[in-house]
């Protein structure tokens, strides 16, 4: 059963978890107002506040904003097959995720939310098409993409881009919900358990491989198992690229533009 407080699992994330399921998401605010959202097969079909249907995009946006400010609200998702006749929207769920992320932004500035990733967690680009993610998130994407292509953390981005760590964490949270980046998992390595401490060191350094993706040969060729060391290595690689990245911003913007519009005409 999917339930909880939107303080720990905000609306965009709930929509992402709902995924392909069909049903009704009910959110009850502390003042006992009931908001509901209907979903079927990755489509958002409509919403209600109390018993009043939400008729247009602007009413929907103000409802999302209202909800993002009531973080003590409780949600529950009820899985049911929905009748197709009760449809006021027929919007890809991911566009509801984008719209609710924009609303969330007004709230997160108060303090660093618990649902943000750890600043040291490394994320990799998924290679998905960014042309629909919306202006604000796309602007961040253009600057951060070269880093995500190799695998990077919020902490490293904060050192390399003129953006505050909190903003970067918010954008990483966003890009992840939009399926633009994923955690860069190392290859799970099995090593045989041993009780002797001296054996331990040799076996560990032998078996700990870092796999951050195909471009990470330079990182992977060094075998430092300690996270601090491996992230320093990564930072060094990025620092050497940093000048080029700044110089090339306009070029990349235009390049992004070109690809983007090619997509538009597909």
């Amino acid at each position: 059963m999917l339930f909880g407080k939107i303080k720990s699992i905000p609306l965009p994330q709930i929509v992402r978890i709902i995924g392909e399921k069909s049903g009704v998401l009910e959110i009850k605010s502390p003042e006992n107002n009931l908001y509901s959202f209907r979903f079927a097969r990755r489509l958002f079909l409509g919403a209600k506040k109390q018993d009043n249907p939400i008729g247009d995009t602007f009413a929907l946006k103000s409802m999302l904003l209202e909800l993002s400010q009531k973080e003590e609200s409780f949600f529950i998702f009820k899985e049911v097959e929905l009748q197709e006749d009760d449809v006021s929207f027929s919007l890809p769920a991911v566009q509801l995720i984008i719209a609710s992320l924009h609303s969330l932004r007004t709230m997160y500035q108060k303090n660093l939310p618990i649902f943000f990733p750890d600043p040291e967690t490394v994320f990799l680009s998924t290679g998905n098409d960014p042309s629909w993610i919306g202006s604000e998130f796309f602007s961040f994407w253009i600057e951060a993409e070269p880093f995500f292509a190799k695998g990077t953390s919020a902490k490293e981005l904060a050192k390399n881009l003129p953006i505050e760590l909190e903003d970067i964490l918010f954008h990483i949270y966003t890009l992840r919900l939009l399926n633009m980046i994923k955690t860069a998992s190392k290859k799970r390595t099995f090593y045989l358990p041993i009780s002797d401490q001296s054996d331990l060191n040799s076996i560990e350094s032998h078996h700990t491989n870092i796999h951050l993706g195909s471009d990470s040969a330079a990182i992977g060729s060094k075998p430092p198992p300690l996270p601090s060391e491996s992230s320093t290595t990564a930072i060094q690689i990025y620092q050497s690229d940093q000048q080029d990245i700044k110089k090339g911003l306009l070029r990349r913007l235009i390049y992004g533009f070109k690809n983007f519009f090619r997509k538009m005409y597909e």
């Binding site: 990733p117 040291e120 967690t121 490394v122 998992s185 190392k186 799970r188 996270p227």
Partner: peptide, 16 residues
């Protein structure tokens, strides 16, 4: 869950 996710993701990037 949020703490679990933080732990899990960090674990994924740091340990094998």
């Amino acid at each position: 869950l949020p703490l679990l996710k933080k732990m899990h993701d960090k674990f994924l990037t740091e340990l094998t």
